[in-house]
Write a protein that binds this DNA or RNA. Structure first.
Lengths: 130, 130
DNA sequence: ATAGGGATTCCAGCTACTGGAAGGTCAAGG
DNA sequence: CCTTGACCTTCCAGTAGCTGGAATCCCTAT
């Protein structure tokens, strides 16, 4: 299977697949003409990666998950730990963004948004309270 | 005022301040010895930048906001537009992360997390439903 | 022979910094 | 006068995870 094929099957751009090879996530064999050749396992790994990435796992998490995926003696606890840690980060990020949203909402609400220069948003950024 | 001074006043690392100069956000004057010299206006701008960045505005947004800040004939509508657009992005991001959180929560809940290899998280990533 | 669609490599760029190296400047102390 | 230490300078490289583009090669069909 050529890279174009496995790209459309996995939903990952060919560029990204080559990049994943660069950083050692997958190592397809090569044909005599130098083309990458992907077997069924490679294709599975790529789908795995695209799914994991779409869940927001970092590349390093993906590396870890991939090695657990391949380890038939893995402990599910190890997988869970990676997922839980990631979940924690996502929750943290949500909290940060919610706080931002609150502040921004306030600011947007306060600004009359007309053609006059007076603006509570600018005032806030300048450090002038209210 | 030297860079170290204005750094501690603004809460921005000196490195970041130099970077802001590189990309044309602020242009302090120079002393004879080559040191950057910040006046009161520069210091205000830097505080402005640190506040805007802490609200998650992009550098390009900051550039725009800074020019509005300096434009005493600005229309507050323009400021509001920048803020509202940013708010929209924040809200979008929150929605994405909340969706992620939902999925991850499910997965983490389903995994018993013991020393056995069977793992619904791995199964999900592999594309095997349930 | 040629045209196209795919494949290859390599280099650069994106965001917003951050770290580090090599060196210049300044004030204080011995 | 010299040294020490804190501060400043520039420049280069690296972070995450790709993405775009250029130059070139390969394969198939006409």
């Amino acid at each position: 299977m050529n890279i174009g094929m496995v790209a459309s099957e996995s939903g990952l751009p060919a560029k990204t697949i080559r990049y994943y090879e660069d950083i050692g996530l997958i190592t397809p064999s090569r044909l005599e003409n130098g083309y990458r050749s992907y077997n069924q396992q490679d294709a599975e790994k790529l789908r795995f990666l695209q799914r994991a990435r779409s869940l927001g796992f970092s590349i390093e998490d993906c590396r870890k998950l991939l090695s657990l995926y391949e380890d038939k003696n893995r402990a599910s606890a190890d997988v869970k730990a990676v997922a839980r840690k990631h979940l924690g980060k996502v929750e943290q990020k949500i909290r940060e963004l919610e706080s931002l949203r609150g502040t921004l909402n306030e600011l947007v609400k306060c600004c009359h948004g007309d053609d006059r220069p007076d603006c509570p948003i600018i005032n806030d950024l300048t450090g002038k309270e209210a």
